[in-house]
Design a protein around this nucleic acid. Structure first.
Lengths: 349, 349
DNA sequence: AGGTTTTGCACAATCGATATTGCGAATTGA
DNA sequence: TCAATTCGCAATATCGATTGTGCAAAACCT
């Protein structure tokens, strides 16, 4: 609390306590025992440090130790339930380990992803989680050059420990639901099920689309190429595409598999302009869960990815240098329409 | 790209280029001109550095310069549309300034808030945004001791630059809506409007509750003490309270003002167990906006806080050392039920 | 030509914390 | 009682980048 104009350093504490800087350093850290600082001295130094409001300079410490106490995470966007849930768990577990989380979002821009990773390397982060990255190869190369332990989440990296959802399994379950819950179908275009959103070149979307195709094919309803519309993750593009589709079909299709919450936002933007009865003969599903989206005017089947499980597994892989599988899959959960998932980790705000 | 086992430093680049470390430092930074490094040498050094995959050590740099290039933000939770929108804008604007955002969430725990701020001070962040903090006085004192520029967002700090929503105005508008859109009311308990959620001891909730009270009083319907239920921000508590209320009233009240998205999540948890017709004679409003919440089975009036505006204003105050008002208010926007707010800043994922 | 300024860079100090080493004094052992 | 440990701490080097200072050589001036 002392009235000082400069932040105090171990040298100030050393002067005030009559000890040497190295003793102060040891006394304030974990190592005072093995450095043979007497308990009395340790207590005294800590008392003075507390009085002075001393806080150790993590830059100096990090420079000396060649590590920072920071742990980084790259995500595409923040304001999306899936990614913000990932972040929420990432933070909690980081804090548990005494690490300080640094989160950056790339807006899915490869150049931005690169810059972020380079920056985090500059700050000597002790580990890096990369979620939903587009240019995984480059990022992984950067990290390896810097000897930085890193884990890919949601989208797997090349030969690098990765944790992803069981996208195939989740998509199989969701597609089944859409088939079974839908109205009895003939073979007109409006009787089909459509897959909308996502980028088919990324692993997650590719797996989901593959499952979608497989289930439909098995059911004797092999999808045509127009039934898969990977229009990216932008709400706007999704809105445009669903509007165009409804135009073509003269109404909603029998089933719609929306491949992300962001795309679903766009879809919703279109739906707001339709009368309630427009949904009567459609079943909607969305890969990813949002508690509000689960209770819309029309029933929505949702797939809830286990964000906490993904992150917990990612930390596990980060700790085990090379044990365990390179690609770890975590099962998602199919949430029935109008079901409130009572997330134990969400009851905190 | 060189095959090296250690991260390269300016000394390595110096050796390779035949220049001195100080020259390398200048050549790689902005100051090469004023330090009279010839353009040829500068180019040569940069080329070598690029080849070596050199990245400067921000800890060393930060230690020397007494600043870090980091900018911190404390929020209560991530997986909440309001805060994740704040974070999204915070990040974008930080990146624009060449700063690296460090975000930490406190789960509204005063002790955690303190630890976070202390930690960020240890890392010498160049500025700090504190959003939705509970123990503002302590946090502000910590920052002032460390000579750390800081701004309170959402909840104002004591005599410190703060940016908040016009909570009173927003609440007046929302309460009006609930009054006007509701069914014609008698004077039974189910004809009243209730205010649910939030912590009345914090500035935002207090202002909103005051506006709620004022509007009802002006309308000749002064609220009883039971009509304001500040049960905090936990979904679970809100769920419990709304269930209890419905029990007492024998159904939903004529109007419900839900004072945060997290509380609304809990309310929804209860609503999922009610039949659709239960909402027939009720009007629901929620302070804060979520695109999915805007399109639930029943109409919901929402107040969308201008997250981007709040953050932009906060950066402005952070830059202007003491100019401008200490408390800056940003107007929120009332969003009609089933309206899709097309956020230009959200169309990125 | 001889002095002055400018150019282009090297040297050394510095930021704050930590780990290794060293060195008296206290303690132990025989 | 004297050597051998052990104890408790101080000195010192180090992490990597930046900045003030110094010093030759080149350029300029009269």
């Amino acid at each position: 609390m002392a009235r000082q104009t400069r932040k105090s350093t171990i040298f100030d504490i050393a002067r005030l306590s009559g000890a040497s800087p190295s003793t102060v350093s040891a006394a304030l850290g974990e190592s005072w025992r093995e450095r043979r600082i007497s308990e009395a001295k340790m207590q005294e130094i800590r008392k003075i440090a507390a009085e002075q409001g001393y806080k150790r300079n993590m830059q100096a410490r990090g420079l000396r130790l060649a590590r920072s106490g920071l742990i980084g995470m790259v995500i595409p966007v923040h304001d999306n339930r899936f990614f913000s849930s990932l972040v929420q768990s990432f933070e909690a577990l980081a804090r548990e380990r005494g690490l300080v989380p640094v989160i950056a979002c790339s807006l899915r821009e490869p150049a931005e992803e690169r810059r972020i990773v380079e920056t985090l390397i500059s700050y000597a982060v002790d580990g890096l989680f990369i979620a939903g990255a587009t240019d995984v190869d480059t990022l992984s190369r950067l990290c390896q050059q810097a000897h930085l332990r890193h884990i890919f989440v949601d989208l797997p990296g090349p030969g690098v420990p990765s944790v992803v959802s069981d996208n195939y399994g989740g998509s199989v379950a969701l597609t089944h639901k859409l088939l079974l819950d839908g109205p009895p179908r003939g073979d007109g275009p409006r009787d089909r099920i459509y897959f909308l959103g996502g980028d088919i070149t990324d692993h997650a979307s590719a797996r989901r689309a593959m499952a979608f195709r497989d289930v439909l094919t098995q059911a004797g309803l092999p999808p045509g190429p127009d039934q898969i519309i990977p229009c990216g993750y932008s709400p706007r593009a999704a809105r445009r595409e669903i509007a165009a589709l409804c135009d073509r079909l003269g109404g909603l299709p029998a089933g719609l598999f929306v491949n992300s919450l962001t795309a679903f936002e766009g879809v919703l933007g279109h739906f707001t302009q339709l009368p309630p009865e427009a949904f009567a003969n459609s079943v909607i599903g969305c890969y990813d869960y949002d508690p509000f989206a689960a209770y819309l005017q029309f029933p929505v089947h949702m797939v809830r990815q286990d964000a906490h499980g993904l992150i917990a597994e990612a930390y596990r892989l980060l700790d085990a240098p090379s044990a365990g599988p390179v690609l770890s899959e975590v099962a998602p959960e199919l949430i029935a329409p109008r079901t409130f998932y009572d997330d134990p980790f969400a009851d905190l705000g």
